[in-house]
Each structure stands twice: as C-alpha cells, then as structure tokens.
Nucleic acid binder design. Structure first.
Lengths: 189, 189
DNA sequence: GACACAAAACCGACTGGACGGTATGATTAA
DNA sequence: TTAATCATACCGTCCAGTCGGTTTTGTGTC
C-alpha cells in the first residue's frame, strides 16, 4: 500500500508527476528502457494509477509530446513578442527557445526527451511536423528563407543535439559563446 | 530447414548481411523494435546462426557501430588528403563526410540511431566519443577552433539530423544549396 | 585421391524473465 | 451514493539467450 494512496487526491499533480517521470527516464535511460512499472514507481504511484491517467504507453508518450510542443510554442511566441528588431526575429526566437532551460526549468528535460522518442513513431512524428509548420505559418515565415538563416537554424539544432548526447562535451563557457555568436549573426541576415 | 544451410558456407557474406539487416531494421522500425529473430530472418539465417557471429544483441550493435564509425573516419581521411586548401580543411571534410552515402545504403539515417537512441548505452557512447576525439587529434584540430568553425560543424550536425528525422522535409535542391553554402563558408574561416 | 577428425558454421526448439495490459477491489472526494 | 482516483494481483505475449544437434570446411595422414 503506497503512502500516497492515503493522502489527499491530487490528480493533476499525479498526472504531472507521471509526465515528468517519463521524461526524466527517457533522458536518463533511453526510450527503449522505458517501462510503465518504472515510471509509476518513480512518480510515486502504482501502475494502476498510471493506466488510469494514460490508458496506454503510446498515449502516455503522445501526451508528453503534446505538452512539450505546447511549452515550446510559448517560448517562441514570447521571444518574438519581446523582440523589437524585425530582422531575423524568428530565427532568433528559434535559437533562444532551444537554450533557455533556466527560465522554465520544469520543461528543460522534456525537450530532450521529445527528440529522442519522436523518431520512428508515426503519430508522434506527425504531431511534431504539423506543429513545426504551424509555427512557421503563424509567424509568417513560410516563404523561402535565405541560406544563412537556414544555416543558423541548423546550427542551433546541432548544438542542441550535442547537448542531448554529450558526445563532444562542450563546456558551459563554449556553449554560451556559441549561442551568443548565433544570436549575433541573426542581426546580419 | 533453411535452404542456405545446404549451400556453400560464406561466413563473411552472412556476417555482412546480418549487419546490413540490423542497420535497415533500425532505420525502418527504430531501435526499440529491433529483435534478433527479425534480423536473422531478414538476413536469411537462423537465430542460432546470428548468435554464432554475434554473441549477443549488445555485441551486434557495437560491431555495427564500429563499422559505421570506421567508414566515416575513412571518408574524413580521404577528403582531407584530397583537399589542397589547408584553411578550414577539417571542417570541410567533416561536413562532406556526413553527406556521403555509406556502404550500407540504409545507414544514412543510422548514425542518428546511435547518436540519439544509443547515447544512453555507455559502451557505444564511449565508442563514439573516443572516435570523435581520435579524429580531432589525428588531424591536429584539438586546439580551440574559431566560433564560426564550430557553428559550421553544428550546422552540419543539424542538417544531418533533419535528414534523419525528416521533420522539416528539406527538398534535395535546398539540401544541396545548404551544403554548398556550408562548404563555401569553410574557405572564409 | 581417400579417409579421419577436429573445428567452424549453422539450425531451431525451448526457457525464463521482463513487460504491457487487464480485472477487480479499496479509498476518497463530491 | 456515486464517480473519480488509485492499489494489487494476475495474464499473455514477446524476446534475448541457451542448448543439443546437423552440416560443411579445413587439415593432416596414408
């Protein structure tokens, strides 16, 4: 009998804990090592409790993705709204949103988890692709972008991937320098 | 009883077929959906035959990883050897090697599987990290690189990741244009 | 060439555990 | 009372790895 069972019911808290536990476990052990039992235990619930909130593993992952994409969209919206310089504004917001874990610490891990799991699942892949094109259309960037802008965008993706994998082990100082450099370049598009 | 059992033994061919089948299945279905039975069937051997060549699933993946890293390393070596311009030579080779078709056709997407999905496997992660630093040291690039060079490198990573995931769906023409642009930038370091 | 024999190559049925999902009961909030 | 929220036990499936066997290949010997 779990001690939490006797506590006051807080379904929203439990649901959030389950999503966060899922994200953390994917980040730490990888998607292939993710089990419902482990997620439930980490979130302090039983597997039955987990299934009550998320009917299947697939649904759990899809909900997690939805959550992440929503937060990510807010990042970009906020950065664009606060940016007075129109030139390169979208790319700037794109880059910044990738590297601001401090402002919204809860979702920093979710970003990384999302990239790891999205690869081969068709439903999740569609979620991500649709979201991306909706963002572009929303901010009027659907027309062809200059090569330099695309390069900056891809560089942000690459640096972010490096942070996920830790292969090259960029130091925090180097990381800051690169991000600053990318941001600076967006003013010269 | 498999017909191949009665045929002439060709262990090297079987071994290569197993590696290729593994690569293809990871690309198609993802690492979490990879099973030894399926790999064996696709390669036209029994599971026993698979285990004879690769004692465990872990070893199979490590060997495949070694094969792929070796190919990339050769690409980089060749590109550097054939490049008369010393300025930005390493970055140029790095970029080109990423977009050169590999021995196993399906493996263009495969490196992503190792970089992302397998980044949690300690042994394979070490393989990749060691390979990367060995390449840097080999070509005398271990000292601090300028920010622009790092940016180009990350941009190559990002474009390559996009090719793996297919999220943004870059057209072949756009792809070529971006690669050319990146290469061109390496001459202005 | 013929034979013997060890080693390599390969087969396929089987097992044991892990894991997703189900069924049902208990507790709490409304 | 009723629905929502969880716990617990259990089932079926999948799958990595084992194991005893069969076939082929290489190597020496005569």
């Amino acid at each position: 009998m779990n001690v939490n069972y006797r506590k006051k019911k807080q379904p929203e808290v439990v649901r959030a804990a389950l999503l966060e536990a899922t994200a953390e476990m994917i980040v730490e052990k990888g998607l292939n090592a993710l089990t419902l039992d482990a997620v439930a235990e980490r979130a302090g619930v039983s597997k039955g409790g987990l299934i009550h909130h998320f009917a299947s593993k697939q649904i759990l992952l899809e909900e997690l993705n939805r959550e992440i994409l929503g937060e990510y969209g807010k990042f970009i919206d906020d950065y664009i709204a606060a940016d007075p310089e129109p030139r390169g504004r979208f790319i700037r917001a794109y880059i910044r949103s990738f590297f601001t874990p401090l402002k919204y610490p809860a979702t920093s891990k979710l970003f990384k988890a999302f990239a790891l799991e999205m690869s081969h699942d068709e439903a999740i892949h569609k979620l991500c692709a649709d979201w991306y094109w909706a963002i572009l259309e929303k901010h009027g960037e659907q027309e062809h972008q200059p090569l330099k802008a695309q390069m900056l965008q891809f560089a942000a993706d690459g640096l972010w991937m490096e942070e996920c994998t830790g292969l090259i082990s960029v130091s925090p100082a180097e990381r800051e320098a690169i991000i600053d450099y990318l941001i600076q370049q967006t003013y010269e598009l």
